[in-house]
Amino acid sequence: MPVRVQTADFDAGREIAALRSGDPRVGAVASFIGTVRDVNEASPVSAMTLEHYPGMTEKALATIVAEARARFDILDALVIHRVGDLRPTDQIVLVAVTSAHRGDAFDACRFIMDYLKTRAPFWKKERTADGTRWVDARASDETAAAQWERDR
């Protein structure tokens, strides 16, 4: 499965090894790992809960990966996104892409992350000293995703 939503942690090394396993066409692997920070908008964050919309989230991620395959010359791609309770330093998301050359691997990895940030139904709720709060969407994420529309 190129797309997984799970509560369990992941081992990026093992996932990448499996992704490129035995494929001699692969000359480049690009990957991105997002992790939980202990601060957001200047206030300390002690924990967060990640929520998704089962069914739609997996479908949205699969659509993003399919679009990356159509736009870039890549061999394979993997997205793992965690949900549930997470703490600072925990891993949240892994995107890994294989291709013959680094250009398409880098571009496709960034494209998948940029689209995931603005199109995949996930929501973060943070716990701070003042209680819990739903995280606000960032305009900079929309700007990053919009860049790919201009570059089409």
Binding site: G34, H52, A120, P121, K124, V135, A137
Partner: peptide
Amino acid sequence: ALLPPVTGG
């Protein structure tokens, strides 16, 4: 489904 702005990743 009614979806607030997404904040994953």
